[in-house]
């Protein structure tokens, strides 16, 4: 997994609640092998017309936002389908962090396993941040995982919570599976207890 320490980058505003994973990555690309650049399909039907030309109004197509590496979104970002491809699409396009008041539970879990940092901040912090990003396209936001802080376009600093294990995995670029495989003894013991009817 890709390591995450800190990112200072242009932030892309997604000023819509309940922005579902079908919008992030439409279902018709789910059969593409992982070796594909899923960044090309990111926000596909919002970014591009059916003939492949860009939708000029879509923020990511505007010069000021093109180098965005952070998404700032409204509540329940990436709800819906469990497709990990939504995380791959954001990551392949270069996004490293998503800031929102809440996330779809499955997306949150998928993001943490792919080096994409989901940051939960209260809506009274996110709403003015979104307004600032829309008013000043190209504004930068900083996310520091070690310090667990977000610095907004107005230089205001906001602390965020993350569980220590996920933080360690992200900082070190370590996969959870390696850690679990070290626990196989516990899993085997549990299976023996189940087999003996005591679990």
């Amino acid at each position: 997994m890709k390591r995450f320490e800190r990112v200072l980058a242009v932030a892309l505003p997604v000023a819509q609640p309940n922005f579902d994973t079908d919008q992030i990555l439409p279902a018709r690309y789910l059969q593409k092998p992982r070796a594909n650049d899923f960044g090309a399909y990111l926000f596909r039907d919002l970014r591009f017309r059916s003939d492949g030309s860009e939708v000029p109004d879509f923020p990511l197509n505007q010069p000021a936002y093109r180098d965005a590496r952070i998404v700032v979104a409204e509540a329940n970002f990436a709800c819906g389908s469990s497709r990990e491809h939504a995380v791959w699409a954001l990551g392949d396009h270069g996004f490293r962090a998503v800031i929102a008041p809440s996330f779809g539970d499955i997306f949150l879990s998928n993001a943490l396993k792919n080096g994409l940092l989901p940051v939960v901040l209260p809506s009274d912090v996110v709403a003015p941040m979104l307004r600032a990003l829309l008013a000043q396209p190209g504004s930068r936001v900083a996310v520091d995982l070690e310090a667990q802080t977000v610095t907004g376009p107005d230089r205001s600093v906001h602390a965020f919570a993350i569980d220590p294990f996920s933080k360690r995995c992200l900082l070190q670029g370590q996969d959870e599976l390696d850690y679990t495989l070290d626990q196989l003894g516990h899993i085997e013991a549990f299976e023996r207890r189940v087999a003996a009817g005591s679990a």
């Binding site: 469990s82 497709r83 990990e84 499955i106 997306f107 879990s109 998928n110 396993k113 679990t180 626990q183």
Partner: peptide, 23 residues
Amino acid sequence: AFGIGATEVSHVLATQSLWQRKP
């Protein structure tokens, strides 16, 4: 019963277990 992503599917296949934060 709950839905999971691809990395978690591979985790269940490999270990028959999942890390979960208590909801």
